[in-house]
Simulated scan of single mutants.
Amino acid sequence: MPRLATMISIVAACGFTVGAALAQDADIGKSLYDDYCAACHGASGAGDGDMANLMTIPAPNLTLLATNNDGEFPMLNVIHIIDGRTGVRAHGGPMPVFGRVFASTEPGPANPYGSVLEVRGRVLSLAMYLESLQK
């Protein structure tokens, strides 16, 4: 019986950890959005940011990504656009490649995997936040 109680405690602790990690991802994604995307795409993602009227190509409404994709959020596409793999153009030139912007400049013992995991985590957090904005 004590073994069962221990297993239940471990499973419950893991569940709380996963919940906390998901909440943290959402907070990180919103923070990244506010810092890097809202100026063009607007605070709500509707494409009406302060810089939108200066762009040569209109900022898309990011709340309609799922609607425009038969109700399915195009997660992989969004990730590729954010990290620069698709070559999406804005401002008359390439959209900022956030894969480079999010990279750590501090490789070393404190960052043994380099910035690859850090970049992927930030891009995924941002994409997950965009998914939460869908109408």
Rank of each mutant, 00 (worst) to 15 (best):
V116A: 14
L22K: 15
D50W: 06
A90T: 04
Y113W: 13
T6K: 03
G71N: 05
D25P: 01
R120A: 15
K30F: 07
V123Q: 02
F16G: 15
F98D: 11
G92V: 04
Q24Y: 12
L65F: 03
H91Q: 12
A39L: 09
M7G: 07
V119C: 04
R120N: 15
A43P: 01
P2H: 11
D35L: 09
N53Y: 07
D35V: 05
R100F: 07
L133I: 04
V101R: 02
D48K: 06
T105G: 15
T105E: 12
I79Y: 14
Q24L: 11
G84Y: 03
G121V: 05
A46Y: 04
S115Q: 13
T63C: 00
Y36F: 15
A21V: 14
S104V: 10
A103K: 10
G42K: 02
L65I: 12
P2D: 14
T86P: 01
A46Q: 15
A110M: 13
V97D: 15
S104H: 11
Q134M: 06
V101L: 03
S132R: 00
V116H: 09
T6E: 13
P60W: 10
L65Y: 00
F102G: 14
F16A: 12
Y113C: 03
F98G: 05
D35C: 02
A13H: 04
A43Q: 12
